[in-house]
């Protein structure tokens, strides 16, 4: 496929997908850095991989599943202890309306 143009618009799109609010200076910088890195990655196109299966994970066949048992975990208090904001025994977040 043709190489995509890594520009400000693409960086802003990807930043939105990543939940990153970037400054203008960051958008410019990442656009030029990512363009160079993606250009390097394009060298993979030189390899014919039509009949090659992808590797998502090595050694998957040696990984047994455990029994589905209920075991003690962190307590409610421990889970909330590090939260930036707690209300009514839960994690509190800003209002969310779509």
């Amino acid at each position: 496929m043709p190489a995509p143009k890594i520009d400000r618009a693409l960086v802003l799109h990807v930043a939105k997908l990543s939940s990153l609010s970037l400054s203008d200076a960051e958008v410019d910088r990442f656009a030029s850095e990512l363009a160079r890195i993606v250009a390097h990655v394009e060298q993979l196109d030189a390899l014919d991989t039509r009949d090659v299966p992808p590797t998502a994970h090595v050694q998957i066949e040696r990984m047994p599943l455990r029994e589905d048992e209920v075991l003690p975990g962190v307590t409610h208090e421990e889970a909330l202890a590090q939260a930036p904001r707690v209300e009514a025994d839960g994690f509190a977040v800003p209002v969310y309306v779509e």
Binding site: L44, L47, T49, P54, T55
Partner: peptide, 8 residues
């Protein structure tokens, strides 16, 4: 593509 090259 990268996953396939990982196989290689």
């Amino acid at each position: 593509k990268a996953q396939q090259v990982r196989t290689l």
